[in-house]
Simulated scan of single mutants.
Amino acid sequence: MRLLVGYLATPGGADALALAVRLARTLDAEIDICLVLARHGNLGSVVATGGYDKLLSEQAQEWLSDALAAVPADIVARTHAHFHDSFAAGLIDAAGQLDASAIVVGGSGGGLAANYTLGAVVNELLNSSPLPVVVAPRGARDSTVERVREVTCALGERPGADLLLDTAFRFARAAETPLRLVSLVALDPDSASGSAGRGHHPAVDHAFRTLDAAKKSLPTGFPVTATVVEGGTVEQAVQSLAWHDGDLIMVGSSRLGAPRRTFLGSTAAKMLRVLDVPMVVVPKAEIGAKHSGW
């Protein structure tokens, strides 16, 4: 298994690399550190044609050497400088060439508030990648956790939930970690029951049925829990869950996204605002055996 790191010589790039190391150690995977470079034609005539590419390549190799030096000795890692007109498309192209299972990026860069501040490249990836995209929260580089502790899968009733569950199960099985299934129910204060008991509200009851069916679809004896969480908002609901360093959450793509592409939906975007654990956004449909994610 290979994980592609969309690298920049920035704190966000360091967050992505640190998270990729954690995932690689957990999954016995290898890392490809990829720096996408803009072609000279996109930046005008500051430097003569050819000279610009040479200077940029030399600087890129220096950045990549520093990144490679930061990877622990027990992790197999390679570096790549990739020229492309689009940074996001360049990462997708490189991931396809390298037969990567997922793309890992840092969330810092401007856009959303709190621990994730998504930049233009990450936003574009989350709306176009045919592979799972793993977004590292700000400060992931400072964590001392070496492996994934638990996988949380946020299930809803949208098309693609079966694929999301299968991806989360395969990851948890490969990582030898427990799997936590959750359904977030945002209720108006007047309609909220104040507890996650069955039958208090149709949405809550439906969420329990969804999780029960998902849990029963997994192999007997697999370490899985399922819970429905209520809140006045999605943010309140997800914050009421217990989170630990080393956890990660998996979500599906929005129903508005194209098939076989990721698309960050409004619910996932709200969750990003309050979470400080990595988020994996899974495409809506499989794209073939060799690119079936984890």
Rank of each mutant, 00 (worst) to 15 (best):
L218S: 07
C153H: 00
A172F: 08
V121N: 11
E235C: 15
T227R: 12
A172E: 12
S143Y: 11
D247T: 09
G160T: 07
R138N: 10
G119I: 10
D162G: 11
H201G: 00
E230C: 12
P137W: 05
T227Q: 12
V133I: 06
L164I: 03
D188N: 07
G139D: 10
P137I: 04
L181K: 00
A237I: 03
P223A: 09
D247Y: 05
G156I: 04
A114K: 14
Q239D: 09
A213W: 03
D245Q: 11
L211F: 09
S191T: 08
D190N: 13
L126T: 01
L181N: 09
F169W: 12
L187K: 01
A203K: 05
F171Y: 15
I249W: 00
A175G: 13
V122N: 01
A213Y: 05
L118K: 09
A214H: 02
G199W: 03
T152H: 08
L131E: 09
G156H: 06
P219S: 06
G194C: 05
G231F: 04
R170K: 15
G119R: 02
V234H: 04
E157D: 10
A203N: 08
L131W: 11
A213K: 12
C153I: 07
F208H: 14
R198D: 07
D245N: 10
A175D: 07
L241H: 06
A226Q: 14
Q236Y: 07
P189V: 03
S193C: 12
V229T: 15
Y116L: 09
D142A: 13
H201Q: 02
V148A: 11
P130F: 00
D205L: 02
V234C: 08
G246E: 01
V238Q: 07
E230V: 08
I249T: 10
V148Y: 07
